[in-house]
C-alpha cells in the first residue's frame, strides 16, 4: 500500500548569521545551522508515526515542513503523491492542503484571543469556501465540549479545553493527516490523559493519520505505531514501537530510555548520561553522537554512519547490532 506521507532526504538549513553589515565589518563568515539533515521516512495510512528527540533535534522543523509552513532546503515531502513545495496545479494544492492539519503545543497561543470559538473552529472550512450548517457545534460535541460553548471566547476555557478546541478546528476541514507538535506537554497529567484518549478515539472513528512530535517517551510508548528517534537533525533510529522499547539499538536511544524517569524507580541510583547536546552550528564530525557515546571508536569520529537494518530497526550507527 502506498504511504500517505513520504518524506525523502529532507534537509533544512537556516541562515543564522549576523546582519550583512556586521558580517562585513567584523569579518565573520556566514553561519549556517543545519536543523534537519537527510531525513527520510514514510507514514502509512491510519497509523501514528512519532518523532522523538530533545531540543535541537529538528523535530518541530520537520513538522513544519510536512505541513508546508516551511519550505525544505533539499529533499521533499510528498502527501498523497503531491509535493506541496513543487506542485503547480492549484487544485491539487488546495485538495492536499485541506487534508493536512496541525495541533500546536501551547493551547494558550494557538487560539486567537479576539475570536469567538465558533469562528475559530469554522475558519478552515470558511477558508475553503464551504461551511456546513452548525459545524462548530457538531465538532465541539465530538471533542467532548458543549455546543453552547461556541459563543464563548478562548479565555473562558482551561488549558485542556482549549486543546480540545484546537482539535475541533483541526477536524473542521476533514483532514486525513494531523501533525501534532507536543500536543500535551503544556497540559497537566490528568488532562493529558483526556486529550490522548480523545485523539485515539478520533483516529479510530475518522481513520486519521498522526505525525506525533514529542520529547515525552511515555506518550510515544502509549500512542505510536512507529517511532523515529532524532539526534541533531538526523534520524538515528526508526523502529516499530514494540521493537524499539523492547530492544533499543542505537546507543542514543538507550541513553534516552535510561535517563527517562520511571514510575517505579524509587530511589533509583542511575549513572546519568554524560555530556549535553552539542552546538548544532558546529556539530561534531562523523557521527554527531560520538562524544557522548560509550561505543565510539575512531571510525565514528571520521565517518557518518548510514542507516541500516538491524533486526526490525533501521539504525544509523556503526556499532549497533
Amino acid at each position: 500500500m502506498k504511504p500517505l506521507v513520504s518524506v525523502t532526504h529532507l534537509t533544512r538549513i537556516f541562515d543564522v548569521s549576523k546582519p550583512w553589515l556586521n558580517r562585513v565589518i567584523e569579518r565573520l563568515p556566514k553561519s549556517l545551522l543545519t536543523a534537519v539533515s537527510d531525513v527520510s521516512f514514510d507514514i502509512p495510512q491510519n497509523s501514528v508515526y512519532a518523532l522523538v528527540g530533545e531540543s535541537g533535534s529538528g523535530k518541530s522543523t520537520i513538522g513544519k515542513m510536512v505541513v508546508g509552513l516551511l519550505p525544505p532546503t533539499e529533499g521533499s515531502v510528498t502527501i498523497e503523491g503531491v509535493d506541496l513545495a513543487r506542485e503547480q496545479d492549484p487544485e491539487k494544492i488546495e485538495k492536499v492542503r485541506s487534508d493536512i492539519q496541525m495541533i500546536f503545543q501551547d493551547p494558550y497561543a494557538s487560539l486567537n484571543p479576539r475570536w469567538r470559538v465558533k469562528d475559530i473552529i469554522e475558519e478552515p472550512a470558511v477558508a475553503q469556501g464551504k461551511k456546513p450548517e452548525a459545524l462548530a457545534e457538531r465538532l465541539l460535541e465530538q471533542v467532548g465540549l458543549a455546543a453552547e460553548d461556541a459563543g464563548k471566547f478562548p479565555h473562558e476555557f482551561s488549558g485542556g479545553q482549549r486543546q480540545r478546541i484546537c482539535i475541533a478546528r483541526a477536524l473542521a476541514s476533514e483532514p486525513r493527516l494531523i501533525v501534532c507538535d507536543e500536543p500535551t506537554s503544556a497540559l497537566d497529567v490528568s488532562v493529558q490523559a483526556q486529550v490522548l484518549n480523545l485523539m485515539s478515539d478520533l483516529r479510530e472513528d475518522l481513520g486519521l493519520t498522526y505525525l506525533f512530535i514529542t520529547h515525552d517517551l511515555t506518550v510515544v510508548q502509549h500512542m505510536a505505531d512507529t517511532v523515529g528517534v532524532l539526534y541533531l537533525g538526523r534520524l538515528v533510529e526508526e523502529a516499530p514501537r514494540e521493537a524499539l522499547f523492547a530492544d533499543p539499538k542505537h546507543p542514543y536511544t538507550r541513553m534516552l530510555f535510561d535517563a527517562a524517569p520511571k514510575m517505579d524507580g524509587f530511589g533509583r541510583e542511575i549513572e546519568p548520561p554524560e555530556g549535553e547536546i552539542p552546538d548544532p552550528i558546529n556539530p561534531p564530525p562523523g557521527c554527531a553522537f560520538h562524544p557522548r557515546c560509550p561505543l565510539a571508536t575512531d571510525l565514528c569520529k571520521r565517518e557518518r554512519p548510514e542507516p541500516r537494518l538491524v533486526g526490525a530497526s533501521k539504525v544509523a550507527c556503526h556499532h549497533a547490532e
Binding site: 492542503r97 493536512i100 500546536f104 494557538s110 486567537n112 478552515p124 484546537c166
Partner: peptide
C-alpha cells in the same frame, strides 16, 4: 501559533493581517 494555524489553512497574508493580527 494561531497565526501559523491560519497560514496552514491557506489564508492570504492580507486576511491574516487584517482579521488575525490587527485585532490583537
Amino acid at each position: 501559533e494561531y497565526v501559523q494555524a491560519a497560514r496552514l489553512i491557506g489564508r492570504s497574508s492580507g486576511a491574516i493581517m487584517m482579521r488575525h493580527i490587527l485585532p490583537n
